[in-house]
């Protein structure tokens, strides 16, 4: 009697398994295959950070004001800060929230001094931090913002250290970056500019670059000459997918105020985060079509 009951239960269970396999297993299998194929076609990591490099003398907190202004309303992107020590060790604070696909990551340097040699070292340290981040968070594309010498560090990193088979930088915004240091005469090319021009072919070809120049008068933002910012065209023009030079004037256009400048925040929103709308008054754009 019991054996009969058991065999009845087994028969019904087998029937249920067959029905479930056909009604659930088969559609689930095809859904998985389609879903994964779709993801592979996109082939971009979900994590798509914005990596920011401050200029000389600035710490990992340099962009706190800017990020605070970008993180308004319901939009809250996480913030991870890394300081690369002189012994190549990393000091990390903050975290990337689960589900946040667009976090901000600031990479600063313990030795944050100005000068050609220091900037070379900082580019190397940036590569250490980038290798750590890419390995830890497994992202394969990112956007970049560099303020002042941070833009130089970024460009050096792109030319000398970034493995384009592993990482893709799609948009870079440099703010008040002195591509020719403090030299006002464009015909007098400094070492850094010469080096960057020499290595320009290694820049990613699909990169979009925005170079922002702040001016308090017609020639300078108080520290960096406009001609030095404009020298970026010798590096990027005819090399990357798109190079755009933007000049910002008016309030908060001094060199150190640029990251908090309202127009620049809007430009970051529109061109880096792609969430901003509308144009910006008081901004002149000189796009260089390729």
């Amino acid at each position: 009697m019991r054996k009969k009951l058991l065999s009845n239960s087994f028969s019904i269970l087998i029937l249920v398994i067959v029905v479930a396999t056909v009604a659930v297993g088969v559609p689930a299998y095809f859904w998985t295959k389609t879903h994964v194929t779709k993801e592979r076609v996109q082939n971009r990591s979900k994590l798509y950070p914005v990596i920011l490099i401050p200029g000389s003398s600035a710490t990992e907190n340099r962009f706190d004001g800017l990020i605070g202004k970008l993180n308004t309303g319901n939009k809250k992107q996480s913030l991870l800060k890394i300081t690369v020590k002189t012994n190549n060790q990393l000091r990390i604070s903050g975290r990337i929230f689960p589900r946040d696909t667009r976090p901000f990551i600031v990479i600063a340097f313990e030795n944050n001094h100005d000068g050609y040699q220091n900037i070379q070292r900082q580019a190397k340290w940036m590569s250490i931090a980038m290798n750590y981040l890419a390995k830890k968070y497994q992202f394969n594309h990112f956007s970049g913002i560099g303020h002042s010498n941070g833009g130089l560090i970024y460009t050096l990193y792109l030319e000398k250290y970034m493995d384009q088979n592993q990482l893709l930088l799609d948009r870079l915004m440099t703010i008040g970056t002195p591509y020719n240091f403090a030299e006002t005469n464009i015909n007098q090319r400094t070492n850094i500019l010469k080096e960057l021009i020499a290595g320009r072919e290694k820049l990613p070809h699909n990169l979009t670059v925005y170079s922002i120049d702040g001016t308090t008068n017609y020639t300078t933002d108080g520290i960096v000459p406009s001609t030095s910012v404009s020298a970026g065209k010798y590096i990027f023009q005819n090399q990357v997918a798109q190079y755009t030079k933007i000049t910002v004037t008016g309030k908060d256009s001094q060199h150190s105020d640029l990251p908090q400048n309202k127009e620049i925040i809007q430009l970051i929103n529109e061109n880096i985060l792609q969430t901003g709308t509308g144009g910006s008054p008081n901004v002149t754009q000189n796009a260089a079509p390729q």
């Binding site: 592979r40 996109q42 082939n43």
Partner: peptide, 9 residues
């Protein structure tokens, strides 16, 4: 997520 990114790459 890190695993997923690695698997997709």
């Amino acid at each position: 997520r890190a695993n997923l990114s690695a698997a997709l790459i």
